[in-house]
Design a protein around this nucleic acid. Structure first.
Lengths: 150, 150
DNA sequence: TCATTATTGTTGCAAATGCAATATAATAAA
DNA sequence: TTTATTATATTGCATTTGCAACAATAATGA
């Protein structure tokens, strides 16, 4: 069987590291850009849905969002219809930062896919989506404490 | 242009999270399995080469290796011919843990590639290798402080 | 209805992470 | 040879990370 875990890990760590370094000039610290882009694209999203888009621990998200809020990037609003949830909205400051993040990400994406034909790029995107869909099932269940057998 | 960064990030975080949870029964804490497998497969490797195989910060690696050593998983030995480097070797304890890690990783790999034909699996492995080779150039240079233009 | 379970969110604490600065040895350059 | 530069490894410090435990509301079921 082809081995893809290590390559994916290397790529993800390298890309994340690059982004974290480059986003310091936006006064975003480690990991925050992940939340910021998704909140800008999904204003009113709640934390639990955000977890799904990012695949990170609940508590990590709570803390990251607290920091984003205290630094004026987002606002959390309670919902009168459902007191359990808090809807998250980007501030003007976040919307200002957004294009820079996207531009950086697009650049990294282009670097990553250098030498790929349009055809190949589409193909790998589809492959990755399938892999993500495959693995998120186990992620959910292991996070909930279920044991896998192997 | 196809967008692959987010999928890769989600997959990597999910897989890493699963592994970290599952390797607690080996008394390995977050991230340590990464180093352990590579040291078992490359006995005598030095930290600097390990960074290259993993894509992580120097200082993070130092600390992870210190912990692995203090917990009896590895040994670091100075080289008489080159006093700058320290060769890293797995202990018996590490070699005992190794097969479990591999088995878990192979399982995750199989889950990730569920529904892929042999042909597709090979194809994505090659794609990922190309992407990793593309991105590691930027990783090295950004880590060294060079600014990218975009 | 009322009890049980699931969902959503937060905190305590211990640990990992990573930038910046440092140290030391090896190599290159002057 | 002496100086400058590069390679390798470590540490200080501030921060993020994440399991476990908790809290509060909502949804389900008996």
């Amino acid at each position: 069987m082809a081995e893809i875990l290590r390559e994916i890990g290397m790529i993800a760590r390298a890309l994340d590291s690059i982004s974290n370094i480059e986003f310091k000039e936006l006064e975003l610290t480690k990991g925050q850009y992940l939340y910021l882009v998704r909140i800008c694209e999904n204003p009113g999203i709640i934390q639990e849905q955000l977890l799904d888009l990012i695949k990170v621990d609940r508590s990590t998200a709570t803390r990251a969002l607290q920091k984003l809020e205290s630094h004026g990037f987002i606002e959390k609003m309670g919902d009168p219809g459902n007191k359990k949830i808090k809807k998250i909205y980007p501030t003007e400051k976040a919307r200002k930062a957004y294009p820079f993040i996207i531009r950086e990400n697009e650049h990294s994406n282009a670097v990553a896919l250098a030498g790929f034909s349009e055809q190949e790029a589409v193909e790998i995107e589809l492959y990755l989506r399938r892999i993500r869909e495959n693995i998120e099932v186990d992620f959910e269940s292991v996070k909930k404490g279920r044991k896998r057998n192997y």
